[in-house]
């Protein structure tokens, strides 16, 4: 199910919070966790692309998963983190409300069938991990990212088609963001 090395049938999961729910991704995909500083906005991009940052000489895009999944957005605070993940040879930063811990989950504690406990589409989920009384929703990052690329392209094409040159659609959104 989860790609990282399995020690006696367990998986290590990085657990993070997104609008009052707990999500997790396999530790093998997580490169590091940083604070969201120095984000440069990229004009004309869909709103879920927050911008880019400089990660030790590498320029990586910062994605707001809350925006992408239509979850309630929280103002950045002291707990806000960026989970830097490597997905299909691309490095991206994912903005999350908080990062709580790294858990070792027994594989039989992972329910492959995602229940309807979240607003996120089931296709982006790998399953649900149960630990004590907590439920940790496991994200399929590869799927999330392929979809992100696709929807970015779609949005850009749509903007181009609707507005012709000049993409005013993005303009309005960005204008709101800038004010």
């Amino acid at each position: 199910m989860i790609q990282e090395k399995k020690e006696e049938g367990t998986s290590q999961i990085v657990v993070f919070g997104l609008s009052n729910e707990e999500y997790g991704i396999g530790i093998a995909q997580v490169q590091e966790i940083i604070r969201p500083v120095g984000i440069t906005r990229i004009p004309g991009m869909p709103t879920f692309v927050e911008g880019v940052i400089n990660l030790r000489g590498k320029i990586i895009p910062i994605i707001d998963l809350r925006d992408r999944f239509g979850l309630t957005k929280k103002e950045d605070d002291a707990n806000t983190r960026v989970v830097v993940a490597e997905v299909s040879s691309q490095t991206v930063g994912l903005v999350v409300d908080s990062v709580s811990e790294v858990l070792r989950l027994a594989n039989d504690a992972i329910d492959p069938l995602p229940p309807t406990i979240t607003d996120i589409d089931a296709e982006y989920l790998k399953g649900v991990g149960k630990m004590d009384r907590r439920l940790i929703i496991l994200l399929d990052l590869d799927k999330v990212l392929t979809d992100l690329e696709k929807s970015t392209l779609e949005k850009l094409n749509k903007m181009a088609a609707e507005e012709g040159p000049g993409a005013t659609g993005a303009k309005k959104e960005n204008q709101a963001a800038a004010e």
Binding site: I42, P43, G44, M45, V49, G57, P61, Q90, T152
Partner: peptide, 16 residues
């Protein structure tokens, strides 16, 4: 800029 950012409009790249 690659991946998600490959189709930026009016931007040819970035620098640090």
């Amino acid at each position: 800029l690659g991946g998600i950012l490959k189709r930026t409009k009016g931007i040819s790249g970035a620098t640090i």
